[in-house]
Structures are given as C-alpha cells and as structure tokens.
Design a protein around this nucleic acid. Structure first.
Lengths: 144, 144
DNA sequence: GCTATCGGCGACCTTTTCAGTCGGAGTATC
DNA sequence: GATACTCCGACTGAAAAGGTCGCCGATAGC
C-alpha cells in the first residue's frame, strides 16, 4: 500500500550509519545489525546488494566491512532505494504487464506525474542532508 | 516496493469511469468490471468500500449502480486512495510499530518530508483533472 | 405478488512477495 | 597455514495481496 519495504528502510539506515562512522575505518555488517537490532543476515544481504550496485565498497576479512563508494553529498536516497527495490513504479500496468484497457486509460498521465514527483524528491535528497539534523520532531507524525 | 495495490488502481479506474458515464444514469459494478476486464466480485468489494466512505452513492435494484457523491472537481485522488488503502505511511516504524532505535534515527525527517510531498500531490489532484486528457504519451514511461 | 437484476456482506482459498535463515566461499590477520 | 572474520548466494517460512464463492436484502419491471 504505497510503502517502502524493510529492505529500503534498513538500507537507508545502514548507509546513513556508515556515512556517520566510516571515518574510523570500514563498518562491518554485524556492527550495524547490532546497532539497530535487525537480523544480521538480512542486513548483510542488503549491503551486498548495495555493494553490487556500486554505492558502497566492501572489504573482506578481519577489520573488513563497508564504506561509502562516494561522498555523502553525491549519493541520493533515490539511488539507494532503486538499488534495493528496483525501478520505482507506482502501478504495475506500466511496466511488464499490460492493462487490457491501455488505450482507454486516462490514469496514466496523472500516475506518471505522481511517480515523477516522487522520483524527483528521492533523487534530490542526498545522504549529506540526512546527517545534520537529529531533532526528535515527533509532532510531525500526521496520520491523516 | 512503493506501489499502489490493485485496489487503488481499480478504484481509481472505476471512479474515473463513473465520472465519465454517470450522466446517463447509475453505473453498475458489472458494467465497469466488463469494461476493464477485472474480476467483478473484487471490483464490487472495492466499490462497496468507496460507497461506505461516502465517496460514491449506491442504488440498489435493477437500473441500479453507482454515482459520484460529489462533483468530480471536489473528489481528490488522495481521498480515493486513502479510502481503499488506509492512511498513507511510507514506512511502518512511524505508525503502530516502534523502531528500537527511534531515538537515534535520523531518517524520520526526510521520510516525513517525502510522505508529505506524496500526500500533497494526491490531495491536490481531483477527478476532474483526470477527465480531460486522453493522449497516449507512451514516451513518458521512464524506467529509470 | 413474482421475478430478474442489482448492491451488500462475510468467509474462504490461492498466489505472490516480503522477511528471515542457513550453509558455503573468500580474505586478511596472526 | 590455521583461524577468525568477513562477504556471498541459495533456501525456507510467514504475511499480505489478489481473487473466489455463496448468501442476503433491496428495487424496478412484468
């Protein structure tokens, strides 16, 4: 229901954590998993995927772990999300499957508009922007 | 992976179709299902839900069916989506479940920002806007 | 008043996708 | 070269979505 998977959640948390702590050396998957209390193997898989996509660099062996492949200001939230969840498609009729009423459907334009808006939001938000602010802001939670 | 369910898809298609055709009388669930080749029972359930939420009006019996409860310009895409999928929450740590690292999480602010952006887009888009344009625009499909 | 047609409602089954788990291979350190 | 640490890829279980079935109540036409 228009929701990120935990893959994206965990991935963003992890990348964020790496960005914060990599100056003291590579950050291991295990450490991040403990920090956020998420299953180590699951997180490992996520990080592997990010490494495969070239967003983070992996280093094997003791003292190994992950580090950002680029500056935090050069990596966008959209890149991380797409690396983990594939291309952003709000509806499935526009990708592989074809809606039988493709020709009559007037929903494509608005849907694409929404999609483009979301994509742009994600792509203009870099990791660097996530690092600064640590205010609680619980009051922003608006379950409309 | 950040995707609408078919409930929302079908719901929007149906409401859109009702808006187009209701001037000649109520539009039956069966007719819409045939038009878009979607399971009649499933669509029925969706329309019932929309009726329950007061977005469309139902009329029983022969010649019965559904009609918009309000002007097309007064019904927003966001209303339809929320009626069918509940409140929009991109991540689940912000609603019922609590992330064990709530205090350290710096992701809330950007997530809420994205969420607010999406919500606003959906809420400012009315049904009336969907009715006018029927251009193909297949070239807009950008699987980035 | 009988009948056909429609919406309304709840329970159920199937399929897909997500979340989490397991064993294996590689690499650096000692 | 043995060991401990890491990354890596296939597998299994759980949850949600999608779809189905059957029955009831209401309304309009005959």
């Amino acid at each position: 229901m228009l929701r990120f998977t935990k893959r994206a959640d965990y991935g963003l948390m992890a990348v964020h954590y790496i960005a914060l702590n990599q100056e003291y050396g590579a950050v291991s998957s295990k450490r991040i998993a403990e920090e956020f209390q998420i299953p180590a193997e699951l997180l490992a898989k996520i990080l592997q995927r990010l490494a495969k996509k070239g967003l983070i660099m992996s280093q094997n062996g003791p003292k190994g772990g992950y580090a950002l492949a680029d500056q935090a200001s050069e990596i966008t939230v959209g890149q991380v999300v797409r690396a983990l969840e594939g291309p952003i498609n709000i509806v499935n009729c526009l990708e592989t499957h074809q809606c039988p009423q493709m020709s009559r459907c007037n929903l494509r334009r608005p849907v694409l508009k929404i999609q483009a808006g979301i994509t742009q939001m994600l792509d203009t938000m870099t990791l660097a922007e996530l690092l600064g602010d640590d205010v609680p802001m619980t009051e922003l939670v608006t379950n409309s």
